[in-house]
Simulated scan of single mutants.
Amino acid sequence: MSSIETPAALFTSPDSPGVLGRLGSLEVRLARTAAEIAAAQELRFRIFFDELGAMQENAAILEERDADRFDAACDHLLVYDTAIAEPEHRQIVGTYRLLRGEMAREAHGFYSAGEYDVDRLTLAKPDLHFLELGRSCVKPEYRSKRTVELLWQGIWAYCRRHRIDVMFGCASFPGAIPAAHALALSFLHHNCRADADWDVRALPQRYQPMDLMPREAINPKVALFSMPPLIKGYLRLGAMIGDGAVVDQAFGTTDVFIILPVSHISTRYITYYGAEADRFM
Rank of each mutant, 00 (worst) to 15 (best):
L212I: 10
F70Y: 15
R32E: 12
G252D: 02
A85Y: 01
V256K: 13
R279Y: 06
E149W: 01
S3H: 10
F225A: 15
A38S: 15
A35L: 03
A35Q: 04
R161S: 07
P228W: 00
F45P: 08
P220K: 06
P140N: 08
R193D: 00
F251N: 12
F280P: 10
Y269L: 07
A157N: 06
L77C: 11
A38K: 14
T33V: 02
F187E: 08
L235A: 03
T267R: 14
R97L: 06
A277P: 05
A184R: 04
R268G: 00
Y234G: 05
E63M: 06
R97V: 05
Q56F: 00
R160E: 12
I47C: 03
V118R: 09
T95K: 13
S144K: 11
C159Y: 00
A59R: 08
A184P: 06
Y142A: 02
M227Q: 05
P14D: 12
L43Q: 06
D195Y: 02
A104Y: 03
T122G: 01
L10C: 12
A59H: 07
M167V: 10
I258Q: 15
D50C: 12
E64F: 01
L121N: 04
A223H: 12
M227F: 06
E88D: 09
G101V: 00
T147Y: 02
P174D: 11
I61A: 11
P220S: 08
S25H: 09
I259E: 11
D211M: 01
D66M: 06
Y273K: 02
I164M: 14
S266A: 11
A176E: 10
M281I: 06
S112R: 07
S3C: 13
Q41N: 14
E27W: 04
T82Y: 00
A277Y: 02
V262K: 13
Y142E: 01
P220T: 10
P14C: 04
D197T: 15
E276G: 15
G175P: 14
I259T: 15
E86A: 15
E106Y: 13
M213E: 14
G242Y: 09
S172Y: 01
D127R: 15
D117T: 03
S186Y: 01
M167A: 09
R69H: 13
A157L: 10
A31L: 05
Q249I: 15
L20I: 04
V19H: 02
R120T: 14
S263H: 04
T271H: 14
E5A: 15
P214A: 14
A202H: 12
A176Y: 05
L121H: 09
C137T: 05
L52Y: 10
R215E: 14
H190P: 09
A34V: 13
F257D: 02
F110R: 09
V246M: 07
K139A: 13
T271Y: 07
E106V: 08
R120Y: 02
S226R: 15
C170E: 05
F257P: 09
A184E: 12
D71K: 15
T95G: 06
H181G: 09
F45G: 07
P87W: 10
A40G: 13
I164T: 15
P214Y: 01
C170K: 12
Q91I: 09
L20N: 04
Q41P: 11
L151F: 03
